[in-house]
Each structure stands twice: as C-alpha cells, then as structure tokens.
Design a protein around this nucleic acid. Structure first.
Length: 594
RNA sequence: GCUCUGGUAGUUCAGCGGUCAGAACAAGACACUGUCAAUGUCUUAGUCCGGGGUUCAAAUCCCUGCCAGAGCACCA
C-alpha cells in the first residue's frame, strides 16, 4: 500500500517514485500550488500539488482538510536550496504528487493536535478522544520509549537466567492492604475472585516450587483514590524474586539495571553513588532523622541534625519541655535560606503545623553575622552560637528547629526540607539520585488503634535475628530485612528477604495480634507451602510506571498509559465503569440495592 | 469524606455590578504559483455550569447543587 513512511525520504531518494500514506497534518494553499504536510508515526513529508503540472490531482487536493487520511504517489524532488526546511528530517525533499487517493475523511477535531498547546487543552477532553491525542508525536515517541524500556528489562533478566512467569489475574481477596477489585463468581454464587494487588504470594509459592529466579511485568490492581504519581486501579510492577539470596544479592542485581535504565532512557546523570559505584544504603532510622522521610531525595544535602543533648536544659521551655516529655529537638541548616521571605517562612510554618508540629522556630544568620530570631533571647547568645557552630551555619543561612516527639519532628522537618529545596531550586532534574533505605522496623504502633502493635510495612518480611529476636526483643525495636529503593525522593521499589519459616511466621503474626488459626485462614497456601521445604528467598518489585515518570520528567502518571483512567477512575473514551445487562446479574446471583 | 482552586465560543483564556459579552487559535468563504504554525480580507460561532437570592441592573455579589483539577485521609 505504501513504499515508504513519512519520515524516511531524503536527498538520496531524489528522482524515485514513491507512495506514502498518512494524515493531512497541515495544508498551505497558495492558489496555484498547494503544500500539504503528510504525517504518520515516523514524521512529516511535504507533498506538493501544482495546477500547471497535474490539474486533476490539484483539484482533488483542493478538497482536502485536516486529518483526512490519504495515499499519494509521485516523484521525489530535491527542494530548491533556499526552500530547505531544516526542522524536518525530510526537509530537503518534497513529493510532486501524480496520484491522490482519499482513504478516509475526518470531522473537524474537538481540539487541535499541537505539541505546544497539548498541555493547555483540557485533559478530560483529550482522554475522551484519546485516539486523536495519540496522534501527537510526543505520545507516540513515549509509547515507543516504553516499549524499548520493557524490552530492556526482559533482556536483562533473561540474560541472567530469570524466567518470566505469569501469575493469575483472577486471584483471591487478600485481607491486608488496599481495597480489592472483586469479581463475582458465576459457578460459585456468593463467592468472589479478587484481582491481585501484587503477585506477592504467588511469587513466593514459585520459590517453593523451585523456580528460583522469577520476574514478571506484573499488572497490579488496587481500588484506592489516584494521586499525581499513582494511576487509578491498575499499574505495573517489575516483580522479581530469587531463592538462596541475601539482601546484598538482590541489590547487586537491581543496581546495574537501574543505572542502565537511567542512562539509556533519561537525560539524567546518576549522582551520589558511594566510592564503589554502588547505591548508598541508609538505615530507615537515619533516613527519618537526617531527611525526615523514609524516601529521601539525595539530589541535595540539607541534613537534619539532632541537638537534643546540647539543648536539654536551655531556658527555652518549648525545647526543654519537648525533651522532658521524651521527645527530641532537631535542627536543619538551609544554605542561603536567609533570603526566604517572611511570607515564605510563614508558609513553611503552616506546612510544619500540618504535620502536627506546634510551630517552626528559626534563626537567620544575617550577612554581618548577627543572629535574627524570635528564640535567641530565650536560648541565650552562647547556646545560640553553639548551635550555629554545630550545624555549621554561615552568613546567609537559616536554621529551622523541630521540637516534639521523634516522629513528629522527623515528619515536620522533612516536609520543610522538601519545600525549602523546591523554593531554592535544589531539585535538579538533570540528576538521578538512587539509594536504598534499609532496616525498616518490623512493627510500630497502629495508627488506627492506639496502643496496638501492628506490622510497619510487610508482614512477610524476615525479622533480623529470626525467632530469637521475636522471642526476646521489644517488638518496636525489631528490624526487618526490608528495603525500599528510592529515586529522587520517590519510592521506586519495595522489597524484602521473606520469612520462609512457618514457626517464625506464626510468631511474627502472634506479636501483631493474629492467632495461628487466623494466619491459616488468611494465608493458608503460603503457610502450608512453607511446611514442605521452602527455600530462603527474597526479591523486590519496582513500580515501572513511577520510575518512567520520574526518569522522563512527566507531569502526570497518566502519560505513561496508552489508555489511562481519568482522575476519578473512569475511562472517558470507553465510558467505563458501565452498566451491565440484568441477565448478567441474574447469572451471578447478584441483586443491586435500589 | 475533608481542604483549596476553578467552570464564559469547538479550544485556550480575558472581562469581576452598568450599551448588543470580547481576543487568539480552530472552522467556513474568497484571493493568491514556494510555503513550511503560509499570508490577506470577510464570515460563522455563546443556556457566561444548573437552581435560588440581593439589586433599578448580575457572567460579575451571596446561598445551594453539579462537574473538574491539586492536595489530604487511604495506598500491608
């Protein structure tokens, strides 16, 4: 049907007869001569109709409108030297059309296909007509990049002996975690499948089955409200699991891949590796203290420093009271932060308060070295100076303080740190800072039921020290072999060395308040499997969509998908979720509440 | 469920108590033989999100509903 695409004709093809097919991108009608930019996935080619040369084709071309689909045959001509368009790959040539066939017409589009205006057009309108929006080269290029990205992942793991194995989509409801998507069973009325939130249990069962190196580009389903970095309903994880490994073995597999992906698929430079070229490893506790979050953005410094000891018996009751109540005082120096306006400091204070801090004390070091602060008069000059020395602040800096329980101080200063970096332009998009956060606590106090001990992260993780620790240590002090992979302040992946021992499993759940019977009921297959020779194993599951979004600096997670859901979980193009036939409900034994 | 912001032509927006609601782009017509976001002239295009209220007068102010975006709760 066509001999070439619209992106490949060049000076070398001059004189040849070619056939192209595509969409009328733009039309420039000069009366006796009409130029049309013909567009397909590969580019634009200028085609020309001249009334003197081919009257019939020119008359046909006069009718063409935007987005009509046509096929043209003609001779490739070199453009005159002064008519070369250096913006186009095909800008040195044009086609003199002999024959024009209109393959299909188009209505006037509901919005313009224009790269520069694309971000301005209402996203819902673009989603409703996604098939038109997909004609934009930016989206097409991105889908191509994603296809290459997936291929790279597959090649990498296959080369290292991993098997790509599909786990069920129709699975079981899992009682923990996010809301499930349920699928009613026709054969067993009243019973339901659930779409998997992650293939967690299946991949562990693969390990028990002896498939010691598994990976999958796994669809995961969670019924939780979307966020800017969280697509509604379905998303993809690069799920992987290995047997007979330590945490370090997993890191050694993942790190080179992430560095390759960064170099190959983004314009970012990998920064902040350690002296051996490996990702830095930061314990959860250090990350919380120094950066105020469990997913630190290491593109910039801004470290938070504990100063509880030096401040314990200061005259400033806000600080000393916090410590008396078992809390802490932390300080954060912000280089060049003295230029923050009064209004910006007020905004940061509000931000800190939103994380339950009672306020946000600060000291500004003015250009002449003088300290400007509402709290210096309470601290006394000597102590204030000691603090300035301790955090190594200099003229032009500002120091912020948090005084409260450890968790509150971490959360509030962490939010302030992040916002300061934004305001001071420290979030450099040409950098990719990867790291691991390790040694997550196994348990914490439940946020729903005060006083109750619950799993902090993942109940399937192996507690560090095994059974002995579970029996002897304060649960709140037990660490897990649990690690998150972080990229520029985003949680790129979560993983763990798993608990593969049924006895340790029962014990771990017992501490969180689950009886043996409850564990059997909820994780029956897994716990049963562990009694038949389960190998030690571990893995992780990077969120592919989120990594691509960060690597490619996309504004929205929706740009990753060919057919995304909107901000309310709907597909505006297909109009889903939709109504179903009453007959279907009858078959399923379901009656809708009126 | 909560907080903030918004809803005016096909699209993106301006107008923020006072004549018939405007611009740009898109669309249509005409002109034009070298443009490449062609150009020039003309034309078409509106339930100012719905409902209620205040006022001599409401797109504009107030109340209410609906819709959307961002954030939060949520996401083992």
């Amino acid at each position: 049907m066509r001999t070439h695409t619209c992106g490949e004709l060049n000076r070398e093809k001059v004189g040849q007869i070619a056939t192209l097919a595509g969409w009328v991108h733009r039309r420039r009608d000069h009366g006796g001569v009409i130029f049309i930019d013909l567009r397909d996935r590969y580019g634009l080619t200028q085609i020309k109709f001249n009334t003197d040369i081919n009257k019939k084709a020119w008359e046909e071309a006069d009718k063409l409108r935007s987005e009509w689909v046509i096929r043209v045959t003609g001779k490739i001509l070199a453009r005159p030297d002064n008519m070369i368009n250096s913006k186009l790959k095909t800008g040195e040539i044009e086609m003199e059309v002999d024959e024009l066939e209109i393959l299909n017409k188009s209505k006037v589009l509901p919005f313009e296909i224009d790269e520069e205006k694309a971000d301005e057009v209402n996203e819902n309108l673009r989603l409703q007509y996604r098939f038109i929006d997909l004609r934009r080269s930016e989206l097409q290029k991105f889908l191509e990049l994603k296809a290459n990205f997936f291929q790279h992942l597959r090649n990498y793991f296959r080369k290292q002996g991993f098997l790509e194995i599909q786990t069920p989509i129709l699975a079981n409801s899992s009682p923990e975690g996010a809301r499930d998507f349920l699928v009613p069973s026709r054969l067993y009325p009243g019973k339901f499948y659930a779409l998997p939130q992650a293939p967690q249990q299946f991949k562990q069962l693969l390990m028990v089955g002896g498939l010691d190196k598994y990976f999958q580009i796994a669809p995961c389903f969670r019924d939780e409200d979307p966020r800017m970095d969280r697509h509604y309903g379905e998303f993809y994880q690069l799920d992987m699991e290995m047997s007979f490994v330590t945490q370090e073995d997993i890191f050694a597999i993942m790190e080179p891949l992430m560095i390759e992906l960064t170099e190959k698929f983004s314009n970012k430079k990998v920064v902040n590796l350690d002296e051996n070229g490996r990702f830095r490893k930061i314990s959860w506790k250090d990350a919380m203290t120094k950066y105020g979050v469990d997913k630190p953005d290491l593109r910039f410094d801004l470290e938070i420093v504990p100063i509880s000891e030096m401040i314990a018996d200061s005259g400033f009751s806000v600080f000393s009271d916090a410590i008396k109540k078992g809390g802490v005082v932390h300080a954060m120096k912000v280089d060049g932060g003295a230029k923050l306006s009064r209004k910006e400091i007020d905004e940061l204070t509000e931000l800190a308060k939103s994380k339950e801090a009672k306020g946000l004390a600060y000291i500004i070091i003015k250009d002449n070295g003088e300290l400007q602060s509402p709290i210096v008069k309470f601290l006394g000059d000597d102590l204030a100076k000691k603090i300035v020395e301790k955090v190594e602040a200099k003229s032009g800096d500002i120091i912020f303080f948090g005084a409260d329980s450890w968790r509150t101080v971490c959360a509030s200063l962490g939010a302030v740190r992040n916002e300061c970096a934004k305001k001071l332009g420290l979030k450099d998009n040409t950098k990719a800072a990867w790291c691991w956060v390790v040694d997550f606590p196994m348990y914490s106090y439940s946020e729903i039921e005060p006083g109750r001990i619950d799993f902090e992260h993942n109940p399937f993780s192996m507690p560090q020290g095994g059974m002995k620790t579970l029996q002897e240590k304060n649960p709140l002090e037990i660490l897990a072999f649990q690690y998150d992979m972080i990229l520029n302040g985003f949680e790129a992946s979560s993983g763990a060395i798993r608990n593969h021992d049924p006895e340790i499993m029962y014990k771990a759940f017992e501490i969180a308040g689950y009886s043996k019977e409850q564990v059997d009921a909820r994780f029956g297959a897994l716990i049963s499997a562990f009694q038949y020779g389960a190998p030690p194993h571990g893995g992780n599951a990077p969120g592919i969509d989120r990594i691509l979004m960060v690597l490619c600096d996309l504004n929205s997670i929706r740009d990753i998908y060919a057919f995304p859901k909107d901000g309310r979980g709907r597909d505006l193009m297909m109009d889903s979720p939709g109504e179903i036939q009453p007959k279907q409900l009858v078959e399923l034994g379901i009656e809708l509440k009126k």
